[in-house]
């Protein structure tokens, strides 16, 4: 049961961390290229914390559902804002 939760942190958590990092880096002033290296550096602790924090979910199913939904929402928001060129 613990491993199911941790795995939720690893797989959907990867996409969630990536999308959150993307939202922060693309929203900052200036072109996205300017925060390329800090973004990739910051992605690692974000992912580590998501993997660890996934254990706060009560069950594996909840962890998978919540983290997957958040990952889809965050990635969707990032891609929509990028496509609309509201962030660059």
């Amino acid at each position: 049961m613990m491993w199911s939760r941790a795995l939720a942190g690893v797989i959907p958590g990867f996409f969630l961390s990536a999308a959150l990092m993307g939202l922060v880096c693309w929203s900052l002033p200036g072109p996205w290229q300017a925060t390329l290296v800090p973004g990739i550096l910051g992605f690692f602790p974000a992912w580590m914390i998501v993997i660890g924090a996934s254990l706060f979910f009560a069950t594996g199913v909840r962890a998978w559902v919540w983290l997957s939904a958040s990952a889809i929402a965050a990635t969707g928001a990032l891609w929509a804002l990028q496509a609309l060129q509201w962030i660059s």
Partner: peptide, 27 residues
């Protein structure tokens, strides 16, 4: 330890992570 965990991951996984993040975040 936090510094080594993060910079260690960066130095070892920089290029594979970039390949994975390229379509997801960087279009």
């Amino acid at each position: 330890h936090i510094m080594f965990a993060v910079t260690g991951a960066l130095l070892c996984l920089f290029f594979v992570t970039m390949i994975a993040l390229n379509p997801l975040v960087y279009r």
